[in-house]
Design a protein around this nucleic acid. Sequence first.
DNA 1: ACTTTAAACATGTTTATGGA
DNA 2: TCCATAAACATGTTTAAAGT
Lengths: 471, 471
Amino acid sequence: MSMPGDEGAGLLPGVLGLQGPLQGPPQPLPLLPPPLFEGGHESDDFLPRSRCYTWPMQQFFDSTSPLISREPTVAQLLTQPCSSNHLPILLQTPAKKKRCRKKPADQLAQKKPNPWGEESYSDLIAKSLDSTPEGRLKLNEIYQWFSDNIPYFRDRSSQEEAAGWKNSIRHNLSLHSRFMRIQNEGAGKSSWWVINPDAKPGRNPRRTRDRAATADSKTIGNLKETRRKARNRVKDIRAMMGGSVSSSQVSISSHEPLFADDPNFPPMFRDRANSALTNPASRVSPSMEGFNDFDFPPWVDASAPPQIPADIVDRTQEIRLEGCIDANSPAFRRTLLNGINGEHKEMKTAKLELQDPPMMQTAPPSYHELNAVRSQNQQMQNPLLRNAALGQLPKQGGSYGFSPYSTWNMSPGMSLPTTQSCASQQVASMGSLPVDLENLTLPDQPLMEMDMEAVLRHELSQTNNQLNFDI
Amino acid sequence: MSMPGDEGAGLLPGVLGLQGPLQGPPQPLPLLPPPLFEGGHESDDFLPRSRCYTWPMQQFFDSTSPLISREPTVAQLLTQPCSSNHLPILLQTPAKKKRCRKKPADQLAQKKPNPWGEESYSDLIAKSLDSTPEGRLKLNEIYQWFSDNIPYFRDRSSQEEAAGWKNSIRHNLSLHSRFMRIQNEGAGKSSWWVINPDAKPGRNPRRTRDRAATADSKTIGNLKETRRKARNRVKDIRAMMGGSVSSSQVSISSHEPLFADDPNFPPMFRDRANSALTNPASRVSPSMEGFNDFDFPPWVDASAPPQIPADIVDRTQEIRLEGCIDANSPAFRRTLLNGINGEHKEMKTAKLELQDPPMMQTAPPSYHELNAVRSQNQQMQNPLLRNAALGQLPKQGGSYGFSPYSTWNMSPGMSLPTTQSCASQQVASMGSLPVDLENLTLPDQPLMEMDMEAVLRHELSQTNNQLNFDI
DNA sequence: ACTTTAAACATGTTTATGGA
DNA sequence: TCCATAAACATGTTTAAAGT
Ligand SMILES: [Mg+2]
Ligand SMILES: [Mg+2]
């Protein structure tokens, strides 16, 4: 019988379909175990399987319970509630696994860096993704690929034994910009993992703590070359995706303000190490690594004003909005102070009476009101707006200028007829319609106020009343 | 000092920005605790905070360790590794909380259904979302709103005390179709939660286990009315989102094949209760509830052939592809048997030699090859294709017909000039470009093979060389 | 540097149970 | 039938320690 979460340990591949893991995160209990209420402990008719598929956790204990010195017995501990109204104290020391990790001599002798062979987790994951027609797998499918294809993991497929290498897989997926996550279309489905076509080919080193990944002009100059390579990978991915993914559609961006290491960043926020305030700028995320390889829009060059530090350009397409904030503006400082979780502090000015029907509430500030506050900053923060303001683009009828974005990801080396990224984005949406490919991601900031009809009308007028696509 | 994961318990709102929780999932350790290695247990200079923020878990114990009857002391237990190569045995009985949940007399006297007042979690979450200008919050921000606005939760903001109500919040978000999740744009950011404009207004009852939520023709006939209401909500959401979300863009769809309760579903898969095989069809997901309120495309009516059961139409836009499969086709059965996690069983025919460079691998079946297998089924499975095949649409140059989708979400009551959903989808993508709104979700099935350029060219030709948008 | 491994934690989905 | 609550679990992100 298949247990929930069972990864099909050691089963023949052909049989796996019948009892392999279910889709996505939820693994339902196939046969509901009898409730474990009355007797507690274990009963003969039901042997609960072991749980804790991720990692052991420490327990809460009521602080009124006997202290450690009393040496309570197991039975006493078992009757402890795991949670109570009292402040918990930590009784249990973390159970550290295998402190010594020296390699066995035989493995060293064979020159295998790992017990399963030459390849790193990262390589194997990439291999698993490449091995599929769509170039994408869900986490569980990656697990399965490991079990199916690599004897070392096949032999360690039990719940308990697999916890470690599954953890490593998740770790690698998250850590390396080489991989990126694409939300699956429906509720209850776990994400797709794909190769990030914009990541630097080869090893993507994890960010070293104090190295500022600043791109100098030479780095930017090198991009023409790296861009060519990346584009080939984009093409491959796109072919595997059936045209549904382009490098501009699935970009990883940082969740950082991206100023932490930048000299233009306000000093009061720059000193990460000494900042006890857990403001968003005081963190460094490894996930922003490996993004010096995407296509730069034409307005990016080494002589860009300090509002667009090359540092940011080097890392992420997040530059689109969040990366192009004037760090000296009050609005930016307010955002920083509020932090991500304080984004909506404004709403607190309209404190709610719980019994009020929703219509009676003080209306929250409208999008337009909020936007008005930000507008004059946005004008210069966003490169698109900034260029428009500088007169590099025709402005008409409230349009902020669209053309720069249509060439954002323009790829002369693409194999397909026309490759304007903006158009490709449309197509992805439209092509996806028949299969319910409709969820979009949203940025932290509200979308800019635009007369999109005018914008697109303008765009159409610039493109011979016809949009072209790089499908 | 702010602890990671600290939700800002009981702090004044104005101060919260400085020490509130950070964005998204990762709560970094602000000051790294000294390593807890050598001594084990607790040292005077470092009092580790309590963990286990979600729920207590059971522990692994080495089966070679002393049995329960020996009554090991705490010290003995603490030195047990949490995981080992041996099969674990369950030592600890699950710690059940509060088996008796009778309401206190005072609360009953006040007629308050909950200690905090009248409203359910669901209502409060909706209120929190409505209270923001964008109509969306991240999980952590919802937590914060509860702490900030409701005394009951403010008084229970400690890690330990908050675990329960935070769990309930997550539970409600996931369970009720009233809420839906939208992926945030960057790696490392948690999702946005928004009100689902397509959900039935008012209570969305959780699905009762054995009730088939079949929509009869009367239900479908009622849709004109409910649709009107939904549209107003869509408009509100859209305004709050700054035009970035429309009902067609953010739809929840089920992760089920959606045939489990349908009489047309093959019997061998329909008996959910008795099916010990954990195939995807043997599950029922509550997340598909509450979807009888979206806009039907014009080709949907009560006389639809059995390939499109009204049951499905009632529930989700997943009908787009996955819901319109011919359940009797071999392809569908194969899909079912493989399950979601067996989707790529084909790749196993090209078993990998670990040391082979990727180029040496047997090439996986191309998208086109895979698609060829599915194509003749897709023709009738997908309503779009089916209509095209039936001659209801002009076919030209490989186009499968696009117009049906442009009227899919057509909304005569919309306040803005033109409201073709397809166009709105485009605009959302294009409008999102300046703020890196680029990630798309992907369906389980590969996208259909289409000459999108021809399709859109056709579409443009049908719309006076101009696309209109409902921003 | 780079990887593996362990770990802590957040986020998200689902099931179970009991009270109203 | 609805809800609150507890729980188990999957998925995803990040930090840390140890080995190469
Ligand atoms: Mg990654
Ligand atoms: Mg939901």
